[in-house]
């Protein structure tokens, strides 16, 4: 039933990590979207938490704005924290 609204699915794979976009699906409402997400995207123990967001609620950047949005960051190496030493044992950095 493609008349049902589209939802974007975000999965947190384990505690301490962020929710990451996993994909999208159709569902009539938020509760069903959450259940569909559980069935479609966490079949192989991929997650401990799920968010579903109406796709219509997402404002996306446009490919036409690519130059003005992203290119200016290209030559600013001083923004990268390459002058620090990462302490041993720190994960997910």
């Amino acid at each position: 039933m493609t008349t049902e609204p589209l939802w974007e699915v975000f999965i947190r794979s384990r505690r301490g990590l962020s929710h990451v976009h996993a994909g999208s699906l159709h569902a009539a409402d938020a509760e069903m979207a959450l259940r569909n997400a559980r069935d479609v995207y966490t079949r192989r123990e991929e997650g401990v938490s799920i968010w579903v967001v109406p796709a219509s609620a997402i404002e996306a950047s446009s490919p036409e704005e690519k130059d003005s949005f992203f290119d200016p960051a290209g030559d600013k190496g001083y923004r990268h924290p390459t002058f620090y030493h990462v302490p041993e044992g720190v994960q997910h950095l």
């Binding site: 039933m1 049902e4 699906l25 159709h26 569902a27 259940r35 569909n36 069935d39 479609v40 079949r43």
Partner: peptide
């Protein structure tokens, strides 16, 4: 099923 998501749910 009425939707592909439900196909997968039924299989599960």
């Amino acid at each position: 099923s009425p939707q592909i998501e439900e196909d997968i749910a039924m299989a599960n």
